[in-house]
Simulated assay, not measured.
Amino acid sequence: MAIYLPELSAHDVSFPPLSRALDDPDGLLAMGGDLSVQRLLSAYQQGIFPWFSEGDPLLWWSPSVRAVFPPDTLSLSRTLKKQIRRHQLHFSVNKAFVRVIKQCAAPRAKQPGTWILPAMQQAYTELHRQGHAHSVEVWQQDTLVGGLYGVQIGSLFCGESMFNLMPDTAKLALLALQCHLKQAAAGWIDCQMPNPFLLQLGVQPLPRPDYIKLLTRLRQQPMPTAHWAARDFSLDDNNG
């Protein structure tokens, strides 16, 4: 059976109502348009994100169930504290955004392809340049060993992707993100869709209507622009 998808206009950044998102594949809402800053911000403010593979048209999604970390979900366990000390890890925000997104796009052992295509990298790098997309980095001395990036919408951080080159550094990047957010807001993190790794960490599956209510509230609570100034920071400042 053929699937009908609304095709977005190149001159209009609006989206169809979320009620028109498909059940199969879950959450597929529209195709086409572009990855301009204006369109991407419009999408995230409505609970929509782009996701497509090489050779596909530009596809836009709003899944029926979202994955959200509520405030204080992530905590620094003894094991993670030992990892930090043993490997002499330290953390930063927005000091290596381009390197983080390139590492997130790199092929992985069980996933040789990537959806973070050059056009996506360019689009989110421009979002970063304009102050909307941010990165968290995990370092071992001067070597980048883990990190993540995403888009800030009000006081909600919409995570896009993460990577680790050492055990637990993706987990530490998430924890560092929540600690950083909590310095200026409650600490909500959207991770798009549940997966086994996120569920193991305590992510909360949230039906789309509940997610939209949360998004509507949090997008009206802007974080100070200065909070994302590139800098190093310590987890010890927030976790004792």
Rank of each mutant, 00 (worst) to 15 (best):
P50Q: 08
R85M: 07
K95S: 12
Q38K: 13
V98Y: 08
D34I: 06
A96S: 12
I101H: 02
Q83I: 10
V100Q: 01
L35D: 06
V100N: 04
W60A: 02
L76Q: 05
S53P: 00
S75D: 09
Q45T: 14
T73W: 07
G47V: 05
G55Q: 10
L74D: 00
P57L: 06
K95I: 11
G55M: 12
L40C: 04
A105P: 04
H90L: 07
D56W: 03
L89D: 03
F97C: 06
D72T: 06
R86P: 04
A106H: 04
K81Y: 02
W60N: 02
Q111G: 00
Y44F: 14
R39S: 05
I101E: 00
Q103E: 15
W60F: 06
G55C: 09
P71G: 07
R66I: 09
R39E: 07
I48L: 11
H87M: 08
F91K: 02
Q103K: 11
Q45D: 13
V98I: 13
V98F: 08
V100M: 08
L74Y: 03
F91D: 01
E54R: 10
E54A: 15
A105E: 03
S64L: 05
G47E: 01
Q38W: 10
D34W: 05
K102V: 11
K102E: 15
C104N: 00
